[in-house]
C-alpha cells in the first residue's frame, strides 16, 4: 500500500479508535441496562467501519461487504435478545439499574 493511502487509512483508524474509547467509557460508567446495549452498538459500529475501511484500502471491497452484512445480522440478534432480557428485568425490579442486580455475589 502506498504511503498516501496509508496516511488516509490512519485518519480513519484515528477516529475509529476514538469511537472505541467512547464506547468503552460508556460501557464502564453507565448504570442503565439499555445504555449498556447502546454502548455495545457503538462499539460494533466502530468495528464495521474498520472492516469497510480496510476493505477499501486493500481493494477487497466485495469481501469486506460480505463480512459486514453478516456482522449486522449478528448485531440485530444480540440487540433483540439483550433487549428482551432488559425488559424482563424491568418487570421484576421496576428499574433498569445494573447495580441492583447483585443477587449472585459470593
Amino acid at each position: 500500500m502506498s504511503g498516501e493511502n496509508w496516511q488516509s487509512f490512519l485518519t480513519f483508524a484515528f477516529f475509529i479508535a476514538l469511537m472505541f474509547v467512547s464506547g468503552f467509557y460508556c460501557l464502564l460508567i453507565t448504570r442503565n441496562m439499555l445504555r449498556i446495549i447502546i454502548a455495545l452498538e457503538l462499539l460494533i459500529k466502530a468495528v464495521t467501519l474498520l472492516v469497510i475501511a480496510v476493505g477499501f484500502y486493500t481493494g477487497m471491497v466485495g469481501l469486506s461487504q460480505s463480512l459486514v452484512i453478516t456482522i449486522i445480522v449478528i448485531e440485530v440478534a444480540i440487540v433483540a435478545v439483550a433487549g428482551g432480557i432488559a425488559l424482563r428485568v424491568f418487570r421484576y425490579n421496576d428499574n433498569l439499574d445494573v447495580r441492583r442486580l447483585r443477587n449472585l455475589r459470593g
Partner: peptide
C-alpha cells in the same frame, strides 16, 4: 468507500430496525 450494498443494509437494519 465504494461499499454501496453494505451501506444500504446498514441503513435499513441499523438505522431503521434497531
Amino acid at each position: 468507500l465504494n461499499s454501496a450494498l453494505a451501506a444500504v443494509f446498514e441503513l435499513s437494519v441499523c438505522t431503521g430496525l434497531i
